[in-house]
Amino acid sequence: MSTAVSARAKTGDTEEAPLLQVRDLHVEFRTRDGVAKAVNGVNYSVRAGETLAILGESGSGKSVSSQAVMGILDSPPGFVTGGEIMFKGRDLLKLSNEERRKVRGAQMAMVFQDALSSLNPVHTVGTQLGEMYRVHKGSSRKDAKLKAIELMERVGIPGAKERVNQYPHQFSGGMRQRVMIAMALALEPDLIIADEPTTALDVTVQAQVMELLGDLQREYNMGLILITHDLGVVADVADKIAVMYAGRIVETAPVHELYARPAHPYTRGLLDSIPRLDQKGQELYAIKGLPPNLLRIPSGCAFNPRCPMAQDICRSEVPPLHAVTEQDGRALPGRGSACHFWKETLHG
């Protein structure tokens, strides 16, 4: 654990308190079949103006950990069983439900994956946007609508004055996602969590939406957590990446270093399975096996049954997040790998 702490210390968060600091977060789902350990001791931090990408497959705990931060975990069956979520100097887990509610939407907001199902089908877009001002600021109906129009113009929805009275199903996929972003942006929160914001969109629209998110983040100097399984989406936008596997962060790195030199076999496997033009005609690499069942996470390193480098120690000992260094011992700021053989992975 001591190495884990030192790895975090080197990310530079010591200079000023980060906007959000998640420490040793544990989340479990108590189901009929047993307890599924969805998040097992996750640490990360985001500063104002910074973008953290959390990368992982379905079931890796990336969405669940962010839902826990947001306080919208489906509970029961989901429970936060340990850790701290420090946000602007307060531990969110110690707040009352009502205090927590006032943080949601106003200080931290969330953009969801599928805007069609995430927007209420029976209310107009204007009503749903205006609701933010009505509830949090006590604005009048009329003011809220004007603000909603302003917001829609802000996120580049043409004809906002007319479209404010339309329903979500009357919008295209890209425009709907803009509405979602507008809703998150409404009260100018300090932190936006975007849970796979572009997964449901066409590739061309994906780029536009990511660009919009990036622009708005810079303009308002917000912290942004980008949850995704798509390595391509994050490359241009994120500052740093945390790769999650079976409820743990297995590697952290500044974005371009991760792509150039992964220090965890899982990350390497992910990068190798991206189709590349220069490998045309060759069989595409795939990580063998399946993600683990969260009811029965393998002992030791959860990735060991799928790992080409697995040794005995991987089956018995959970690797902590080692601080990653160059071969000559020079520190690599912000880099960490939860692999017993990170040196071999990175340098060998």
């Binding site: 947001m70 919208i72 489906d74 509610r101 006032k102 943080v103 949601r104 939407g105 106003a106 907001a109 969330m110 969801f112 599928d114 199902s117 995430s118 927007l119 209420n120 089908p121 609701e131 933010m132 509830v135 949090h136 809703m183």
Partner: peptide
């Protein structure tokens, strides 16, 4: 999903 969104809005 829209109920979750409503909760996330802090309503």
């Amino acid at each position: 999903d829209y109920v979750r969104t409503a909760t996330a809005k802090g309503l």
